[in-house]
Computed example of a mutant assay.
Amino acid sequence: MADPTPLSVFDDLRAESDELDDAVAELGPERWALQTPASGWTVAHQIAHLAWTDHSALLAVTDEDGFRELVEKALAAPDSFVDEGAEEGARMPPAELLARWREGRTALDQALRAAPPGARIPWYGPPMSAASMATARLMETWAHGLDVADALGVTRPPTDRLRHIARLGFRTRDFAHVVHQVPVPADPFRVELAGPSGELWVFGPEDAPQRVTGPALDFCLLVTQRANRADLALRAEGPDADRWLDIAQAFAGPPGTGRPAKGDAR
């Protein structure tokens, strides 16, 4: 399977968002208040966070000065900035919050598609292309959608949209080492994953001495820290690849705390 095109990333982000929208659109207020696996976050917090981050991304694409002010606020309160944004949105009536999320993600979709070829969009980490920004938004939408599904007691079947997230997880290998203050491996890795449709997705040189293999879903759960490594069917060959599976994260920011293994006491 060839690497996804920029257009397919935009289309897949829209599809991922619409699928999550369908899951929450008809919920009553009491279900918006259900607790999710993220400590202290309800379904409303999860959707509010997506709306808040979409707004941040829209500013980054369309208003660099406005986004710069947002970054300054984040630097002034690094431990609480994200939670405060989610908390503010979660206090809104569900219908109003849902409308805000829909409006924001539609505006972001249009802005990303209209971005000039080769444009570099500022972010909390290094600047990125419009396609990379869409990939990051798809990753977050999928991961927070899993938390919502868990709270609602439903299952969201994996799709081949996961290829974008798997590729991002592979490309953020070095970043994960840096944020965990672990030396970056000198040699590249090979990653071989079985996609939901049965296709084999491969990243990295074929002759790499160290590799990771397993289901694409499990790899995506790992790099978004939605499941503990102990509960996943991923195999590492080589000590550096093995260590990577303990620290992998595809999202920006400080090291994530991850999720406990299913057998751990809560």
Rank of each mutant, 00 (worst) to 15 (best):
P117F: 09
L27F: 03
Q225E: 13
G198R: 12
A25S: 15
L245S: 12
L50G: 04
L222D: 05
W41K: 00
I47N: 06
R31W: 08
V184Y: 05
P126N: 05
V9P: 01
A57K: 02
D242N: 09
F10Y: 03
G125I: 06
C220Q: 06
A77R: 15
D242A: 15
L59F: 05
A130N: 01
L245Q: 14
A99I: 00
A241G: 12
L112F: 02
P78A: 11
K262A: 14
M139N: 03
S132T: 14
D218H: 07
D79F: 09
G195Y: 07
Q46E: 11
L232F: 03
A99N: 01
T62F: 10
P205M: 06
F175K: 00
D12F: 00
T135I: 08
A99F: 01
I121Q: 09
P94Q: 07
P183K: 01
D21Y: 10
S132I: 03
L59P: 08
I247N: 04
Q225Y: 07
A23P: 04
L70Q: 13
A261W: 04
G104S: 12
V148S: 11
P158A: 05
F67T: 02
E96Q: 15
D160Q: 10
H177Y: 13
A241N: 06
R226F: 10
C220Y: 03
A151N: 13
L221H: 04
E30F: 01
D207G: 06
R120M: 14
K262W: 11
A119G: 08
M133F: 07
S197R: 13
T257D: 15
G263S: 15
P183L: 04
R167E: 15
R173V: 10
A48H: 02
D207T: 12
T172A: 04
A44Y: 09
E30W: 00
D65T: 13
H164Q: 13
T106N: 11
T172E: 01
G66F: 02
G153L: 01
L50P: 03
A38L: 11
A208E: 08
D240A: 15
S8I: 05
D207L: 09
R259V: 11
G263V: 13
L138Y: 00
E69G: 08
R173Q: 09
E72W: 01
V148I: 15
L232Q: 06
V148W: 07
W52A: 15
A166H: 09
A227P: 09
R113H: 00
R105E: 05
G40R: 07
P117S: 12
G253W: 05
Q110G: 08
G258P: 10
I165H: 06
D3E: 13
R243E: 14
Q249G: 10
M133I: 01
E19H: 02
A25M: 11
A261L: 06
A111V: 07
L222G: 03
A33T: 04
Q210W: 06
V61N: 00
H49L: 02
H164N: 12
G28C: 02
L112V: 01
H164C: 10
A99D: 14
R190N: 08
